[in-house]
Nucleic acid binder design. Sequence first.
RNA 1: GGAGAAAUGGCAGAGUGGUCGAAUGCGGCAGUCUUGAAAACUGUUGAGGGUCACACCUCCGGGGGUUCGAAUCCCUCUUUCUCCGCCA
Length: 423
Amino acid sequence: MLQLQAIRDSKNNIINALKKRNIDATTIVENVLELDEKRRATQTKLDNTLAESNKLSKEIGMLFKTGKAQEATILKEKTVALKEESKTLTEDLNTAAEELQQLLYQIPNIPHESVPPGSTDEDNEEVFKEGSIPKLNKNALPHWELAKKYDIIDFELGVKITGAGFPIYKGKGARLQRALISYFLDKNTEAGYTEMQVPHLVNEASGFGTGQLPDKEGQMYHIGADNLYLIPTAEVPVTNLFRNEIIKESDFPICYTAYTPCFRREAGSYGAHVRGLNRLHQFDKVEIVRVEHPSKSFDALDSMVEHVKNILRELKLPYRILRLCGGDLGFTAALTFDFEVFSTAQDRWLEISSVSNFETYQANRLKLRYKDENGKNQLAHTLNGSALALPRVLAGILENYQTEDGIEIPEVLVPYCGFSKID
RNA sequence: GGAGAAAUGGCAGAGUGGUCGAAUGCGGCAGUCUUGAAAACUGUUGAGGGUCACACCUCCGGGGGUUCGAAUCCCUCUUUCUCCGCCA
């Protein structure tokens, strides 16, 4: 959520910046400012009414105390009108505040100045590329075929138990999953991230805190009986740890990592690109989350990008980094770098990580603040990234490491797996 | 799931209708003393709205009500604790 003060101060800059998202925000911003005026005017009126009423109440109290009950009764009558008035004003105020809030929820974050223009993923800017693409033999298979051939993932069995998009990992497949999780967590911990275990269900307030609600309502699994949501990413519970917190400046930087399963309804995605592990309703991910001082958040973003690079280097997977264009940028992000691994067998890039700076957008909703050197409360910056999402890393490994007689395990994972080949 | 008790500032904890945004202690911050630190002493120390700045308004778990006036009374929800039951 954008800060009202920022909209008041630099309305035109905001409207201009949002054009990068291919949005004309003129009307909504003007409506916001109008409602804000109205809200403040109503607030002032209400405050004055209440002030008068408080004053009278005090006088009545004094009169009763000094035994002047009759005079008190006269004053009491005067308060009746004030009460009526304040009731109406309170209702007006609540309506205006609620409408204002609804409008603010609809405005996405301001893209960072480095965000390139564009409307689709075609327009994302490749900023880095590394690793060699292996030469596979003619019989190279996509991962869903490999999974079947070596009996390590059973998609049909998952359909029986739950439905499409809920695979069953078996034997060495399951072990490889566990190895990846441990390996990622270890790498993140080494880099200074504190490991956390968090709930996989969150309440409504948490959904609003990080911006999944109301924007992506339909993408989360919702448990009606308890009004809870299955998390689409660990970002939600981990970032919400700081909801309504005022932290000390000396607490920066805050670096957390967490492994969780992620649940996404993925309503409306079908077709060839969702085969196998490419798009699932439940998948595993190790996430990194940071809370930073505003002056340090872009350095932090860079260091997160470097960190993910290092992991991919160690796994020896060919990858590239994209700076997302305005049209592809998530609703709440100011700047996002996507990592994609090249899948030789599918001959396409697979997104495996997304690292973003949200600046104050989430912090404003979360009321996540820190005390600056003058003792004033300021909004912090939040960031997060995947380090990493499992299924497509797994797909990348299976497809890029396949040989005639089995799938090699990347060297760094062998100690975690306890085997060096799937055959 | 059943019965009872409770929820107040960073923490602990007073406050049962007006003088309460709220005693006191601890913690935090600033200062005095000290070569420095500790101790001691002095001052200061919640959040939001509003204002150029004040004034002023709101907030004592959430929501609603009674009253001229609510931290204090009533209703309701949530959470926590104790006991019982069940159980990984």
